[in-house]
Design a binder for these strands. Structure first.
Lengths: 230, 230
DNA sequence: ACCTGAACACCGTTCAAGT
DNA sequence: ACCTGAACACCGTTCAAGT
C-alpha cells in the first residue's frame, strides 16, 4: 500500500511551522520561502498554514523570534562593555548560521516581545553598568545592526514606538514592568526632546562623528590591521 | 474624439522609466512598485518596459544610480574628515527624500559603475588625505550604511568582488584606471590576508570595539546629548 | 525600432466546505 | 479543531506578432 516516502507529516503547530521555515530559508534562501513552498515541504496544502500563522509577515516574525531566543546570555560577573560585546558576538554567530536573518530583520515592522526583550537586555547591560539612559540610547543607535549581528532600522526607534504604544496606563504599566530599560530610555529621550524633533538627525551625526573621530585617532597612532605577510 | 486625460505618454527611455519608478516609489513605497503598476502609470503595456530595462532588478539598480548620481561633492579644500562627513550627510539627505532607498540598496547584489564611483570617491577622500588604504578599508566598513545614508551589506565587501572581478588583466587595468582607490584597498587587503580568512570577523570586531571604546570614553566624560528642558 | 496580446508559471490570501 | 478545494487578484517574464 502507498505509505509513500513523503515528508514527515507530523501534526502542524506554530513552532513546527516556524522551525521548518527556518530550515527552508537556511537551505534555499529567503527568496525561496513562500507559503506554498513551505506547505509542500510540510506535506500539507498552503491554506493549512493559516491556522498556525496569521500571514507571511507573522511567519517571518516568528522565525526571527526563534533565532533571537537562541542568543546566549553574557556572564553575570562581566562589566557592561564585555556583556554588550558578548551579546553582539552571539548575535553575529546567528547571522553566520542563518544568512537570511539580516534581510528578514530589515523588513520587519513590528517589534515582538522577544525582540523587545533582547533590546531591553542590551539596554540593561549598559544602564546597570552605570551608563546613563541618554548615552545608552545613542550607543545602541550607533551599534545598530551589530546588536542583531546585522541590520539597522528594525531598531531605528528604540523610543518612538515605545512611547506611542504606551499611551494607555495599562500598556505603560506592562511595558515598564517587562522592558524597564527600554522604557527608561524612551522616557529620558522624551524629556530631552519632547517634540521628537531633530532627534534622528542628531543620532545620525552622533554616530558619524564618533566614528570619524575614532578613525582620526587611529590614523594619528599609525594603526594597522595586521602586518603585511613577507 | 477620445484624447483622454491619460498619463503624459512621452516616448519611453531608460532614463524616463527610472525617473517615473522613483516618483512612484516616493509616493506609494517600494512595495507598490511593480512592472505592471509602473507600466500603467506610463500609459503603456508592461512588456514595453523590457525594451529599456533588463528586468525588475535592473530597474531598481538604475533607480539607485539616479539617486547616487545626485549626491553632492564636498569642497575640494576641505580635509578628509570634513569631506567624508559632507558625503555622508549628502547621502542622508537623499534617504530622507526617498525613504525606500535604504531597502532598495539592501537588496542590491551588483555594484554599478555609479555605485563603485561613489565608493571610490569616499575612499579617495581618506587616501588623498593621507589615511592608509588599510585603515580606510576598515573605516568604510565601520561607516557602513552611513556612506549611503543607510544600509550595510550592499557595501559589505569593498574588496572581495573587486578582486574576483579583476581576474583578467583587461578588467584589472580598467578598474585601476576608473576606481583606483577601491583597487588600492583591495590590493592592500589581499596582501595582508591572502586567503581572505577571518577578515569579516576582524572587521566586525574592529567596529564593535571602536564603538564600545568610544562610548566608554564618553561615559567617563559624563557626556549628555543635551540638557533636560526645565 | 518600439510596442502589444496572449500566455506561463508563479504569488498571498479568502471563503465555503469537508472530516 | 484542523485541513482541503476552488477561486480571486495579483506577480515577473517569454514569445510571437503587430506597426
Amino acid at each position: 500500500m502507498p505509505q509513500q516516502d513523503t515528508p514527515p507529516r507530523r501534526r502542524l503547530s506554530r513552532a513546527l511551522v516556524a522551525r521548518e521555515a527556518i530550515t527552508l530559508a537556511d537551505q534555499d534562501g529567503l527568496g525561496a520561502l513562500s507559503m506554498r513552498s513551505l506547505a509542500t515541504r510540510l506535506g500539507v496544502v498552503p491554506m493549512a498554514l493559516y491556522k498556525h500563522v496569521a500571514d507571511k509577515s507573522d511567519l517571518i516574525d516568528r522565525m526571527v523570534d526563534v533565532i533571537v531566543e537562541s542568543y546566549s546570555e553574557p556572564k553575570h560577573s562581566a562589566g557592561w562593555r564585555q556583556k554588550v560585546r558578548a551579546r553582539a558576538l552571539s548575535a553575529r554567530e546567528a547571522i553566520l548560521a542563518h544568512p537570511w536573518l539580516g534581510q528578514a530583520i530589515d523588513t520587519r515592522t513590528k517589534r515582538s516581545e522577544t525582540v523587545l526583550a533582547h533590546m531591553n537586555a542590551v539596554a540593561g547591560d549598559f544602564i546597570e553598568g552605570g551608563v546613563s539612559p541618554d548615552l545608552t540610547h545613542y550607543a545602541m543607535h550607533t551599534l545598530g545592526n551589530r546588536i542583531w549581528g546585522y541590520s539597522p532600522e528594525a531598531f531605528a526607534d528604540v523610543d518612538a514606538p515605545t512611547a506611542a504604544d504606551a499611551h494607555t496606563p495599562e500598556i505603560y504599566a506592562y511595558m515598564s514592568n517587562r522592558f524597564p530599560y527600554v522604557v527608561a530610555i524612551a522616557m529620558d529621550a522624551a524629556s530631552r526632546s519632547p517634540s521628537h524633533s531633530c532627534e534622528q538627525q542628531s543620532e545620525f551625526e552622533f554616530t558619524l562623528d564618533l566614528i570619524l573621530e575614532a578613525v582620526e585617532r587611529l590614523h594619528l597612532a599609525n594603526w594597522v590591521s595586521r602586518p603585511i605577510e613577507a
